[in-house]
Amino acid sequence: MSALPAAAEQALETFSQPISWEQRARLLMAWGEQLEPLTDDERSEPNRVDGCESLVWLVGHFSEGHWQFRASGDARLIRGLLALLLVRVNGLPADELSTLDLAAWFSQLGLARHLSPSRTNGLQAVLTRMRELTLNAPR
């Protein structure tokens, strides 16, 4: 398994510190602000992830053995969660992505609760969509 991407290292360093829920929320929103925006065309119905309380779109591109995802949403905290997801998965070789334990990743960041089954914020639905995209892609 290759080393963490630099942005993921940075996220881990920031979020794994003992911080209050309020700091965590502010940090999430700040990370969300850094998401690269999607074009109007990309914010399309086929790219929309069902099962979210807010609108979330996920776009994935596969080239030369690596996945590159982009995502956005209309709520601020979910955008933060998306940003933290993307820094962990982007640029990974396909085989590494398929075995990556993303629940553990969010757990390391102190955000495990956002993946609980009763949550409707959509992070779980985003992970499911990501899995579908990667499974259906040519290897």
Partner: peptide
């Protein structure tokens, strides 16, 4: 304010309300 954001922050503060 998106109600999903509000719900998130109310949950963080131990307020059990319904969102959606």
């Amino acid at each position: 304010v998106h109600s999903a954001d509000l719900a998130h922050l109310l949950t963080e503060q131990g307020i059990a309300v319904r969102a959606g």
